[in-house]
Design a protein around this nucleic acid. Sequence first.
DNA 1: CAGCAGGGGGCGT
DNA 2: CGCCCCCTGCTGA
Length: 495
Amino acid sequence: MADGMLSLSWNNHRATFCHILATLREKERYTDVTVACEGKFYPVHKLVLSTCSEYFEKIFENTPCKHPVIVLKDVNRCDLEALFCYMYEGAVSVAQSNLGRLIKAAEVLRIKGLAVPDEPPISDRRTASSHHHHSSDDRSSPHPKRRRREENSHSHQGRSQSSPSPPSSPRPSPLHDGGDSHPAQRSRSDSQWGDHGATDREDGGMDGVADDRLGDHSTTSHSAPTPPQVEVMVDETLVKEEMIDQGDTGQEDMMDSGMDYGSVGSDSRLEGSAGGGGEEDHMLPGKYEPKANPSQQAIPEAVVEALAGPSGMQTWLGGGEMPSGFSGLEGYTGSEGGQDLHPPSQAPAAHQLMERENNCQWPGERTRGDWQGGAGASAGKVHQCPHCAYTTTLLHNLKRHILKHTGEKPFACSYCSYTTTRKELLNEHINLHTGEKPFSCPYCTYSSSHKNILRRHMRVHTGVRRHMCPHCSFQTDNKSVFNTHFKIHIKENSV
DNA sequence: CAGCAGGGGGCGT
DNA sequence: CGCCCCCTGCTGA
């Protein structure tokens, strides 16, 4: 120390820091990355993630976007929540039985202190050694796993989880929940997701998948497990928000805003956005409302947007260190241009993204005349497709049509390699994966994942046949069958 | 007949 | 632009 220099030490810095971090996470304030896992969405902080994991750090390094969405496919949700708890608070309780799995997940994500030795930063060594409140959280940990077990055996002093059952984060963002609520409505999809509800099924279901993958990874490398399948996406909505937030602060780095205690409570705009989060809290059970109001869909929709958003918002990593499992949109070049896109993953995703309840307002929809007659739609100008003879009065329709020619399919299924040009088609397609069959026949127990299928099915009840033979009483729904039939009459007439 | 995918019209925001 | 409406085509049981 130089003469006259005083060392000012904030005794409770560490505890306060951790507490505020956890609070910020709870309030989802300054969160700048969303981690999606098994249908849940966890808004967290890049800073924390990259601090605790080189793996995440790498991802963020290679992800220039403001608010990426990282989809973890090979990590159990409970494990992830536990790891978040661990990262934010330096400690987490975990049941003995889940320890192995958790460690695996930690290895996969290269969580410092759990799976990766956390070398003490040279410059910070003084700081690190100066606070030793949490014995479980001191730097250098040559045997993270073992230390982990010790930590597990005697409940630590941190945020003690009273329940010995699978660790759950203090507040696993229920508003982003893939749908723990409404089990009745999820009866079908539960088997698909293999999560929620019974915990043992959780272990058996998702875990099987995760373990398989982990096993695969471990075959390739023991010391450094291959990172899990991850998708990183830009959350358009959140990006917008953030841009607004940063508009006048000029803060480029979340560190500045997020760690600036002085600004925590002073920024009214941030307060406002946090208030939005508060609102979202109220809507958590609304996930399966047949027609969720816009606010209810806020976050899921945001992520949906991110997952299957327009080209301009897609930022796919082409980095070398990135996991092989990156799946993305097919041949789609973002506005940044020239990203190296990976083919969509074939692996079944272990997450639930857009299980959006489709509009279920069967019967009582618009009559055919409504849409065919077209109210005040066609106003003047006719737009001609440059690739074919198609014309339309709506530029919007032309744009959509042109996608057919360009082969652009911006919307990718997160469960399979299916891609499509339209979001609603994707949503219908995803029903196939989720097992959702929102369209029920009012006459029988039949239900379908596609509204069109139901509509056609209804004809068996209503007896409506679209094709009626003018020559005889024959009628059918099938055009080709009708044509075949009609040819008979033509032949007869010609003979 | 059901399942699935693709496509066009048009309304609401 | 998102979403809803509807139709059509192909396939398979």
